[in-house]
Simulated assay, not measured.
Amino acid sequence: MQLLIADLHLHPSQPDIAKGFIDYLHGPAREASSLTILGDLFEAWIGDDYRGEFEHRIIAALKACAEAGTRLAFMHGNRDFLIGEAFAADSGCALLDDPTVAELGGQRVLLMHGDSLCTRDEAYMAFRRQARDPAWQAQILSMPVEERIALARKLREQSGEANTNKAEDIMDVTPEAVIETMQAHDVRVMIHGHTHRPAVHELSVSGEPAERYVIGDWRPGTGWQLRVDDDGLTLESFAI
């Protein structure tokens, strides 16, 4: 069995979700051969050089799960794009490129965070290009920790305000971008998170049937996962 999750947005202000994730790493995740996190594990990450007690607890739980035999992989999201090699080494997570083609359940699938598909949100796409630029990231990481904390808080506030004023369809993926991306990678199954709209979408790619799985976000009391086993791919929610 393989498991995929996304969009936990872990933060000290949501201790129930953090506890649920740690319990998950000690339970269901250890029954799986692999656990893949498709971005936004953290609500914010200001650099591998800053870790408070909260971050240390999460990293320790990940490491323990990896040492118990579960292969862990992490893909950057739009909130934790500054996670780097030090985090990967300490947590036992392999870093995945966005996008990544993998084999799940005997078929080629495309793994993504999903934000790159929201092409109608032009303001966000401009920010994404900046945020993924290595030179910009290096500049941010060279700032004192206090300034990075303040910047992360400011960006979170701006994101919340901007999303309040955006139309719902703008914050969802662009259908044409989905088709073009699947064609470019020659896949008929796509898996992503980001939109917080869990669903299985049936579509057609190059005249062939295809599927897009959207993994839901974790909230107090509820988590989401995509389970891959002998029965195929199953999107499901569960209590935390």
Results as ranks from 00 to 15, higher is better:
Met143Arg: 11
Asp230Tyr: 00
Gly223Leu: 10
His185Phe: 06
Asp169Arg: 14
His185Pro: 01
Arg188Lys: 08
Gln137Ile: 05
Lys154Ala: 07
Gln137Val: 00
Leu96Lys: 01
Met143Glu: 07
Ala150Tyr: 03
Asp7Glu: 08
His76Asp: 14
Leu155Phe: 04
Glu31Met: 12
Glu43Ser: 07
Arg153Ser: 13
Ile179Asp: 15
Arg132Trp: 02
Ala152Leu: 03
Gly193Ser: 11
His56Trp: 05
Arg129Lys: 09
Gln225Ile: 10
Val101Asn: 14
Glu122Trp: 09
Arg129Leu: 13
Trp45Gly: 00
Ala167Leu: 09
Pro12Ala: 04
Tyr24Cys: 12
Gly39Met: 01
Arg120Lys: 09
Met171Val: 13
Ser237Met: 09
Gly47Trp: 11
Pro99Ser: 02
Met1Val: 09
Arg108Val: 00
Ala150Trp: 01
Met112Ser: 13
Leu3Pro: 12
Gly69Asn: 04
Leu110Lys: 12
Ala102Thr: 09
Asp97Trp: 00
Leu226Pro: 10
Ile170Gly: 00
Asp90Ile: 09
Glu202Ala: 15
Thr164Trp: 08
Phe42Asp: 01
Glu208Val: 10
Ile215Thr: 11
Asp229Asn: 15
Ala18Cys: 06
Phe54Met: 08
His185Glu: 14
Asp133Arg: 01
Ser91Lys: 07
Gly52Phe: 08
Arg51Phe: 03
Arg219Val: 10
Arg227Ala: 15
Leu95Cys: 02
Arg71Val: 07
Ala32Ile: 02
Asn163Asp: 13
Thr195Cys: 06
Ile58Gln: 08
His56Ile: 04
Ala66Asn: 05
Asp186Asn: 15
Pro28Ile: 05
Lys63Met: 07
Leu95Glu: 08
Gly232Thr: 04
Val187Asp: 03
Leu72Cys: 09
Leu117Trp: 08
Arg79Ala: 02
Leu96Pro: 00
Gly223Cys: 10
Ala138Thr: 02
Leu110Gly: 06
His196Glu: 14
Met125Arg: 14
Ile215Asn: 06
Arg212Val: 01
Phe21Ile: 02
Leu62Cys: 15
Glu168Tyr: 07
Leu117Glu: 13
Ala167Phe: 02
Leu203Pro: 04
Trp218Tyr: 10
Asp229Gln: 07
Leu38Lys: 02
Gly84Val: 14
Gln130Pro: 02
Phe81Tyr: 12
His11Ile: 11
Ile149Trp: 07
Met75Lys: 01
His56Pro: 01
Cys93Asn: 11
Glu147Asn: 11
Val189Ser: 05
Glu202Trp: 04
Ile37Arg: 06
Arg156Gln: 10
Gly47Phe: 05
Phe81Pro: 12
Glu202Gly: 13
Leu3Gly: 13
Leu151Gln: 13
Phe74Tyr: 13
Leu104Lys: 00
Val200Ser: 14
His11Trp: 06
Glu55Thr: 14
His56Tyr: 10
Glu161Met: 05
Gly69Ser: 00
Phe238Glu: 15
His194Trp: 08
Asp229His: 12
Arg51Leu: 15
